[in-house]
């Protein structure tokens, strides 16, 4: 499942919704991304998340489908926020559920790695030195490459 929203999310409630009553699931991995107060040596006071409505949903659904091809998953969820966020705010949630932990761990790791380089989101940071668009990191590209 894919969801885009401006509101915060509740990890426990999302996990319960995804796995509640499904006793075949033996492992659920949750990943939560948070807004940091510093980015590569620069203070971050606020983060603005822009995305491409329509394409974002398609891209996330494609990434999720790819994970379901590669691992034995019983359920998965991607929630990504957009709009204005503050340091400490949760920004992205990935949950994967499987009969066994290896599949859940690997799929969660894959989903967040691919999401960072294959879904149309853009971050702009406000800091002490003004506002600037975040540059893509080579390390994110390399991280996504380990799954190819």
């Amino acid at each position: 499942m894919i969801r885009l929203q401006t509101a915060p999310f509740d990890v426990g409630a999302e996990l319960e919704k995804l796995t509640g009553g499904r006793t075949n699931i033996g492992a659920a991995v949750t990943f939560t991304g948070l807004v940091r107060d510093a980015s590569y040596g620069r203070d971050v006071k606020r983060l603005h998340l822009e995305h491409y409505p329509g394409m974002t949903e398609r891209a996330l659904a494609a990434i999720e489908a790819e994970a379901a091809e590669r691992w034995r998953l019983d359920a998965s969820l991607i929630v990504h926020r957009y709009g204005t966020l503050l340091p400490g705010d949760p920004i992205v949630l990935v949950i994967t559920a499987s009969a066994h932990r290896d599949d859940a761990f690997s799929a969660a790791w894959f989903l967040i790695d691919w999401l960072k380089v294959k879904a149309p989101f853009w971050k702009r940071e406000d800091g002490a030195e003004g506002s600037r668009w975040v540059e893509p990191q080579d390390s994110d590209e390399e991280a996504s490459g380990r799954w190819s």
Binding site: G33, H51, R58, V92, L115, K116, F121, W122, V134, E135
Partner: peptide, 25 residues
């Protein structure tokens, strides 16, 4: 709404978008 290359055909396209490299997650 699908990533493409600059040499891909556009004649049948209904929507074309330009943006910087993505920085989500």
């Amino acid at each position: 709404q699908a990533f493409a290359g600059f040499d891909d055909p556009i004649r049948s396209a209904t929507e074309i978008a330009f943006f910087p490299p993505v920085t989500g997650g």
